[in-house]
Design a protein around this nucleic acid. Structure first.
Lengths: 226, 226
DNA sequence: ACCTGAACACCGTTCAAGT
DNA sequence: ACCTGAACACCGTTCAAGT
C-alpha cells in the first residue's frame, strides 16, 4: 500500500518483496524476537530507514508476513472409513500444520486472526462430528474440545522443543523416586521406570487424542443434558 | 550470594529483597517483557547499576523470581470417592494453579525447571491412576496424556485471554456461515449457532478432561498391546 | 559494602534532506 | 520514487570511581 504504480527510474536497491523474504528467513531462523529492522537492513545492504519506506514499520511487516503464512496453509481433508478415524485424521493434520509453522500460532494470535485461521479446520471438524451423529451444542463442544486439545498439545510440544536442557531431568527425578523408600499410595516401579523414559510425542498424541475423540463421539452423553 | 554477612554502616538505599519485590510487581503487572532494569531502578529511586550489585543481572533476577514462585506453589491434593473423579480433581487443581500464575510456565521452561515443577502433580496423578488399576507403560501414558491435556488447555486459554479483539470474530464468521447456502456435508444450523457463541472455558475444560480421563481409565485398552 | 555516572552496543522510529 | 544520516528514546551490561 506504500507504493503506487510507476515506471521505475533507476533500479531500486531493494523491493518490498525482498524485504518480506529476508524477514521470513530471519523469523524462521531466529524466531520473532530475532527479527530486527537493523539486522534486516544490514542483510539487504541498505540503510535501516529504507526498510521503513517499503513496509511502514515492524508491526506492519509482521502483519504482512502472517497474512502470507496463513494463505500458504494447505487445507485439511479428512480420510478414513468411519467418523472417528476421520476426526482423528483431521487432528493429525492440524498438528502437522501447526508444528510445521512454529511461530505462526503466536503471530496470528497477536494480530487477532486466530478465529479466521482456525475456521477451516473448525468447519472440517464440525462436518465429521455431525456425520458421527452429534448435533447442536453437544457437537459444538466436541469440535472445540478437539481443537483445544490439538492446539494445546502442540503448544506444549513447542515449549519442550525449544527449551534448554532441563535439570534435573524427568529421568533423574523418577530414578531418584525409584531409589527412595516408597511412601503409602506410591506408584509401582514399572510406572516409575516408564515415566523416567523420554516422551514419545507422536505416540502420546495418538493415544490421548484417540481416547478423547472416542469418548466424545460415544453414544453416552459426556454431560447431563435434557 | 552476592552479599556477605556484615554490620551495615549506613542504611542501604535498597536491599536484594526490595529489588525482588519490585521485580515481582513489575512482572505481574506488565509481564516478563515489561521487566526492565532501568524501570526497576527508577521505581526504587536508585541508579541502574545498583540493581546489578544486588542481583547480578536480569537473567539471575528472573532465576530468583522463578525459584520463589515455584516454592510458593501449594501442593495438589486429590478429592472424590472414585479414581476418575480424583484424577479430575487433580486436573482442575493443576489448571487453577497454572491460571493463577500466567507467566510461570514460560519462565520455568526457559530456566529448565519444567520437570521439577511438574513432578508433584505427576506423582499425584500417578498414584491415582495406579489406584484406578493401570500399571507400567499404560499408566505412564495416561499420566502424561492428562498432563499434556491440562497444560495445553491452559496455554490455549492464556493465548485467548491476552490477545487483542479478534477480527473477524468466531461469532461473525459462523454467522456468515449461517447466512450462506450450505454446501454438501455442512454442519447443521444449531451447531453453527453454538459455534457462534463465545466459549465457556470452564465447561469446555470439564467436558474434555472428563471425556479424556474416562476413556483413559476405561477397562478396554486405548491401543493394541500384548 | 554499597552506590554512582559514563560508556558501549544494541533496539524501533521519525524527520529533513538528498537524488 | 527511493534512499540516506542524524537524532531521539529506549534497552542490558561493564567498568572505574566514589564513599
Amino acid at each position: 500500500m506504500t507504493q503506487g504504480t510507476a515506471k521505475a527510474a533507476r533500479t531500486p536497491a531493494v523491493s518490498r518483496r525482498a524485504v518480506l523474504d529476508a524477514a521470513t528467513r530471519l523469523v524462521e531462523a531466529q524466531g520473532v524476537a530475532g527479527l530486527s529492522m537493523r539486522k534486516l537492513a544490514a542483510e539487504l545492504g541498505v540503510a535501516v530507514t529504507s526498510i521503513y519506506w517499503h513496509v511502514g514499520n515492524r508491526e506492519a511487516l509482521l502483519d504482512e508476513l502472517v497474512q502470507e503464512m496463513v494463505h500458504g496453509l494447505d487445507a485439511l481433508s479428512p480420510s478414513g472409513p468411519d467418523p472417528t478415524t476421520r476426526v482423528l485424521s483431521l487432528a493429525v493434520g492440524l498438528r502437522r500444520v501447526l508444528r510445521d509453522h512454529p511461530h505462526l500460532i503466536g503471530l496470528v494470535n497477536e494480530r487477532g486472526l486466530t478465529p479466521a485461521m482456525f475456521l477451516p479446520s473448525e468447519r472440517a471438524l464440525a462436518a465429521e462430528i455431525t456425520a458421527a451423529g452429534l448435533t447442536g451444542a453437544r457437537a459444538a463442544e466436541a469440535v472445540r474440545a478437539v481443537q483445544y486439545h490439538v492446539i494445546g498439545f502442540v503448544l506444549v510440544e513447542r515449549h519442550t522443543d525449544r527449551s534448554p536442557e532441563q535439570r534435573p531431568s524427568a529421568e533423574e527425578l523418577w530414578q531418584a523416586e525409584l531409589a527412595a523408600p516408597p511412601p503409602a499410595g506410591a506408584a509401582d516401579s514399572a510406572l516409575a521406570r516408564a515415566l523416567a523414559a523420554p516422551v514419545d510425542a507422536d505416540r502420546l498424541f495418538e493415544i490421548s487424542t484417540g481416547a478423547l475423540v472416542r469418548a466424545l463421539l460415544a453414544p453416552s452423553p459426556p454431560a447431563r443434558e435434557t
